[in-house]
Write a protein that binds this DNA or RNA. Structure first.
Lengths: 345, 345
DNA sequence: TCTGGCTGTCGGAGCGTTATCCCCGTGAGG
DNA sequence: CCTCACGGGGATAACGCTCCGACAGCCAGA
């Protein structure tokens, strides 16, 4: 006998609606009746069919998450927190990876809509202009992660501020010859980090030599190219990587070059992935609160869902979280070759 | 007007079943009719409700994946491959994290069943005895990942062989004082790696000094405790870590101690995470083919689903994949202090 | 004793699909 | 001119669940 609510009812000698009431605590049953229902449920090993329930209730208790990939620690941490918070609040996470492919992303989006998810969280790659537009036509609440989208709910790090923090720190240590390793510098986030960094340096009259700027993917390989920076003088005394993975790659590259960190070269990363703390010396890095972003985004999304005000683009819907600078051992006071006029910190 | 198949039909002046036929290519429509339907679909921005379809078809085209966490690179890679293959074959991945908590795991399992997933992939933490039993009662095809479960379909690495490979390599290089860093040594996988390693050494008459064995979690912290191994002689000349993260931690720890890799100490890891290649020197490690595991597991599961032979515990259902040893720079020939009687490789 | 409200339970409609069966019209073949 | 096959399209019954309204039976208060 198949485990449906109707069969449970039959076995317990009651109506299906009574079983439903029992399951949902939506009515008080007489003790005897309740026992019969319990027994029938156990006998059939019955579990409610959430698909059918969803169809009736127009609510699936599922949320779609789209991220570019899962191996970048930042996204991994984000996804983990999203899953955890969703589960605590009774939702299932559907995970899809976009691989930074806009078409794939769009397919996932419409697929989610077809699956009747209650809401969508997305780290979007679409061009700025089209974002809000495309998504509004989905008629499902959407919250953007790790991206700022005007007129749409989004939760992100203040990357510009993060860049500023890194710059302030290096300047205070007396560095003037500073290099940048820019991973994925076509992405707005990275652009903001670079802008914050450059603007802050410029405020002190320091400019980054264009020859000291390397572009590439957000991977260890870009970092290992740090050697190129030392091929001809003046060599940089500090390196800012827009991403911890790149910074770790740079760290490996510097060691391979025989450079000491931080005596010869100071190194600052961005993200604060777990491994940063375990380098020797540990990496100074701008901490991006992935877990907080995940938590806040879920809170915001579930809020929108509950209040059905999903598509109202209230300005308060954009949450910008402040990164913090975690100063560790990879940065130090400039020892020699620095401008003597600059007071050391 | 709400975007349902009925409304589309009304707008196109046909019956709902005709629209259904159109959508599923299950019947040929007259060109004019087809156009009308197309137009109506576009006008209403209609997308089929997969929930309703699933209810009718008893097939959700969704698969549940349960892994302990997402930040361990191995699991991340696994999940990424699973998502990718599933998506290619028209399935959606539901991801849940167990945090190695058996209860949480069981909840996720029953939740998946309630959601009518077509199949489940799980990296299981349940005790060996209960595994097959518990899961069989779910009445849904289940494939175990990264674990060998007797009498149930599973896809895993041959961890014992992996341990052997590491041992063979170190022996050939002449090492006799060998330490082990055992992350999460209560897990069968790790037990197998240690067993393979020890057995292979013993075959050559070498035994690991119990004082040279450290246990802990699978994290960088355990690795950094490598310093404890050098507190009193004899010091090990080689270290085997049952996991790359631990190995990387050990690498950091060794550098902090002033030990050179591989001149003073050789180091072997397990997993071959991306970062291994970027250490200086790069890490010799046993590669566990996470991507292959993911792909094979999905293939196996979808196969079971299609053939409805899900619960037949055919022995051929266990797939054991061979790991490979990637020899890189972190291991070298024993230079001094080794047993001179041993021919160097 | 009658009324009215409360408690426990039931029947049925409907959520949005699709599969099955049926029907109508057309054109070819006898 | 009749038959029959076939192609295009419709009506209907589920799929498993929940909500709504209804209806007995019961007890308290008048």
């Amino acid at each position: 006998m198949k485990a449906t609510i109707r069969n449970v009812a039959k076995l317990a000698g009651v109506a299906p609606s009574t079983v439903s009431h029992y399951l949902n605590h939506t009515a008080q049953l007489a003790p005897g009746t309740a026992q019969n229902v319990e027994r029938a449920i156990a006998a059939l090993n019955y579990r409610v069919n959430l698909g059918a329930r969803s169809l009736r209730l127009k609510k699936t208790h599922s949320i779609g998450l789209i991220i570019p990939n899962i191996s970048t620690p930042f996204f991994g941490e984000l996804a983990a927190m999203v899953e955890s918070v969703l589960w605590d609040r009774g939702y299932q996470m559907l995970l899809s990876l976009s691989a930074r492919d806009v078409n794939r992303e769009m397919s996932h989006l419409t697929n989610f809509v077809s699956r009747q998810v209650d809401g969508i969280l997305v780290v979007y790659n679409q061009e700025q202009e089209q974002r809000a537009q495309n998504v509004r036509s989905l008629a499902v609440p959407v919250v953007f992660l790790d991206r700022v989208v005007r007129g749409a709910p989004s939760v992100a790090t203040d990357n510009y501020l993060g860049g500023q923090l890194a710059a302030q720190h290096l300047r205070k240590l007396g560095h003037r010859q500073i290099a940048m390793l820019c991973g994925q510098s076509d992405i707005q986030n990275v652009i903001d980090r670079m802008a914050g960094f450059n603007d802050e340096l410029r405020r002190d009259g320091v400019a980054v030599d264009p020859a000291h700027v390397l572009h590439g993917a957000q991977d260890l390989e870009l970092g290992s190219r740090v050697s190129e920076l030392f091929s001809r003088p003046p060599s940089p005394t500090a390196v800012f990587a827009t991403n911890d993975i790149v910074a770790i790659g740079a760290w490996c590259g510097l060691i391979a070059l025989g450079k000491r960190v931080p005596q010869d070269v100071s190194l600052v990363g961005f993200d604060d992935v777990e491994m940063s703390r375990f380098l020797v010396p540990p990496l100074t890095t701008v901490a991006q609160p992935a877990a907080v972003i995940g938590r806040k985004a879920v809170d915001l999304l579930l809020d929108l869902i509950d209040r059905k005000q999903a598509l109202a683009p209230a300005d308060g819907n954009t949450i910008l979280l402040e990164p913090t600078l975690n100063v560790r051992g990879s940065t130090g006071i400039l020892e020699k070759g620095g401008d003597p006029a600059v007071p050391l910190y």
